[in-house]
Nucleic acid binder design. Sequence first.
RNA 1: GGCGACAUAGCCAAGUGGUAAGGCGGAGGUCUGCAAAACCUUUACCCCCGGUUCGAAUCCGGGUGUCGCCUCCA
Length: 467
Amino acid sequence: MGIRIHNTLTRRKEDFRPIEPGHVGIYVCGPTVWDYMHIGNARPFVFFDVVRRYLRYRGYIVRYVQNFTDVDDKIINRANQLGLDPMVMAEDYIKAYFEDAGALGVAAADVHPRASLHIEEIIAMVQDLIAKGYAYEIDGDVYFSAAKDPQYGSLSGQSLDDLKAGARVEIDERKRAPEDFALWKKQKPGEPAWPSPWGPGRPGWHIECSAMVREHLGRTADIHGGGSDLIFPHHENEAAQSRAANGAPLANYWVHNAFLNIDGEKMSKSLGNFIVPREIMKRYRPETLRFFLLSAHYRSPLNFTEDQLKAADASLERLHNALAVLEQWQAVTSREVMDDEERKLLGRLTAHRERFIAAMDDDFNTADAISALFELTRDVHATMGPGSSKELVGAVIGLYHELGDILGLLRREAPATLDDEVERLITERQEARRRRDWAESDRIRDELAGRGIILEDTPQGIRWKRK
RNA sequence: GGCGACAUAGCCAAGUGGUAAGGCGGAGGUCUGCAAAACCUUUACCCCCGGUUCGAAUCCGGGUGUCGCCUCCA
């Protein structure tokens, strides 16, 4: 009856039990800020945003932490290519992240820690790991010795031997073993660096998350999430470091989303087959991309095509229409008392809500939860009308917003306004219709359509919307 | 080569033992001045072959195919 979450570590769904009852600490791997996010990157951000919203809806006090990797090879390379200061460039892409995330309805995390601002904590953890015998320094670099961790490989389900057998990358001769990974990297010319006991250098990729989880959530996070490509090596290594340093698991529930593919292939910057949210939002309402990303279960790969985006937009339109119609009814109805049929529907609202909740409880099944919204919609259309009672209409609108807020959809928009010219045309058209001058009426409707205003004549008057 | 996912209608996608949700698209109809919105009807040999079971899309085994990971990756 509670929330169940698929745990990458155990490969099955488990009942969710936070460490501290009523509180949840979530850490999600955020972007490496070397470029704009693309819609593949957007998938985890949107999904985990929903996880957070849902946990809050279910009454948990959620602490949500999402980092920015702002010290990294890719950032340095890019900045050097462009002749920019890496930290300045990172700052610009952090700003861009917030713009894109905001447009997607992804709220800011409670904390957005940055690697560059946690150097002290990182150094402390590396020192600790050396002291405990898990790490070793070679000439300014520090490596973690994977073989020292008996559980190494447990997250990705690979043994050290498997990994050695499959190794496809050049072995760094400085390391004692190929599976060892860098905790601290000695400064190379032209790279940003911080002083450390091993000389100037910068943190390796994996250590930042371990240090920042400990700093902001304590030794063990309830949920640690990210894209499935992070399972190995990133999360495997994080888990190993934190286990070694803290004697406690980094996270109790590991949650990984599948990829967004395009033309059947993983969308990635290195393949060059990526699309950026800001481009999509020029052509579709902002919610469309979010709806699309939530239309499949997060552990299923999702293939991006223009047709699917159109279909998502059409689907979302149906929900928006339902809400708009309800709002129109709300404005015209004066009936206070519900009749028997309405009382039955009011009862069914609970069933619709419960179906939605059951879907979300079951490993955040957003696709199934969305279908509950459509079932609600059909029920509403079949049962209600402009004469429905105020109370029922209000309750239904309330439910749309209650459930829509969990998914970050059906956002309340500021009441749209029309300019005087458009108002005048609509009035003229109404007069033409009164005269039964259909030619003039249709001409005005077409003209307004050309300006992006769609008119619908209803018995309760004109309804308009933009598109 | 190793590890792991996935395969459900024209498209997308839920469904983990009891006889296939939902959406988009298509077809027909109702309503409408015409539209739109909405409603009704309609649109599935659940990849293949075995097995377990009274019963399998669902469990097990074997194929086939697609995808991901194997130290840049959400």
